[in-house]
Design a protein around this nucleic acid. Structure first.
Lengths: 189, 189
DNA sequence: TGTATTTTTTGATATAGATTAAAGTTTAGG
DNA sequence: CCTAAACTTTAATCTATATCAAAAAATACA
């Protein structure tokens, strides 16, 4: 798993052997069973996770108890309740294992410590933020301009792995439509 | 207007007199009449704007020609079609003056140049990205979990200036509801 | 200052997609 | 394997909010 993370980091920034060792030393392994929660509403998100195996789901819950999924992180992706991670405030987002998962995590404290001791880490974080921003804005645009059919078609086109790998319930939550509507779309589109 | 920008920058980062001068030298003034467009669909967003006076609106348009507003920037705020600014690709977002406006702008090139020559600018950009991310995620959450009434109430609570200062058409576009629905909400809520 | 244009309000109707309900189908653990 | 639980499909109904239409009010400008 550390090898996966090494590849990920080397792909984004240029660091020395020593710096890489320092960075990796802050990441600890963690295994989760399916459906286990990492962050619950109101908790502060104090860790960022790297998915070695499995899938993490980040989602909101509205007053009626219905959830809306913001993001799925599969193998070799980072995930965190980023708003809470940034602001230090309690999280409106939950993190849950959508499958049995094996992760590496780094604490908020160590993450910010790295910003101070590894100059390139600032650039790593910048790219991370940029990517997260672009991703979220695309999601926002999708919800503001597309109907159920268009959202489903786009997902099928751009990220079919979500549809292939996860149960309808979670796909529907990601598209913010009901399971029944998704089921009908699958048989028609 | 340069004074406003100076205050804004000093509020976010610590820079020397000289560095500040360098930074300011890259910003040029620009006046816009109401409704004038700064970035049109498909153009690349090559500038970031600081609003000295007036208001900028950033929005998407869907296939039916209906627009959805992502952000309003009033006095002493920055605004840009950030996805395009980050990726360098053509913009899905438009920028328009919602009122007669006086701006300062910096080009993408100069902005990135500053990242190289003023060490603190990286931190300035990081805070900018963090704020933009937090803001967008809150918008996303709002659209995913709130109905028209809830969205209106929250806006009234958290950002009443938008309702007070801008016409219904733009407020409705910001909430992603029809003008008629907004009008009915205003008379009831 | 009066007329044209734009914005807001109000009412009637339409619709996408939610909800409810129940029958099939798949999956996982004992 | 077998059975209980979880998931998916299908159909009928409901609802929030859009759309359409037209009057009323506000604003701009000639």
């Amino acid at each position: 798993m550390y090898e996966q993370l090494t590849d990920y980091i080397n792909d984004k920034i240029k660091v020395s052997e020593d710096e890489l060792k320092t960075i990796l030393s802050f990441f600890k392994p963690l295994k989760l069973r399916k459906n286990e929660l990492l962050v619950t509403y109101g908790q502060t998100s104090e860790r960022t996770f790297f998915v070695g195996k499995g899938c993490l789901r980040i989602f909101f819950i509205n007053e009626d108890g219905q959830d809306a999924t913001r993001y799925f992180a599969f193998e070799n992706q980072f995930a965190t309740a980023l708003v809470s991670f940034i602001t230090g405030g309690p999280s409106d987002e939950f993190i849950q294992a959508a499958e049995h998962s094996e992760l590496l995590y780094i604490t908020h404290r160590d993450f910010y410590h790295l910003l101070e001791i590894v100059p390139q880490w600032e650039s790593f974080y910048r790219h991370y933020l940029e990517k997260a921003y672009v991703n979220n804005t695309k999601r926002l645009m999708s919800f503001l301009t597309q109907d159920a059919t268009e959202k489903y078609r786009q997902l099928l086109d751009e990220n079919p792995v979500i549809i292939r790998r996860l149960p309808n319930k979670l796909v529907a939550s990601y598209l913010n439509i009901s399971q029944e509507t998704l089921s009908r779309l699958k048989s028609k589109v």
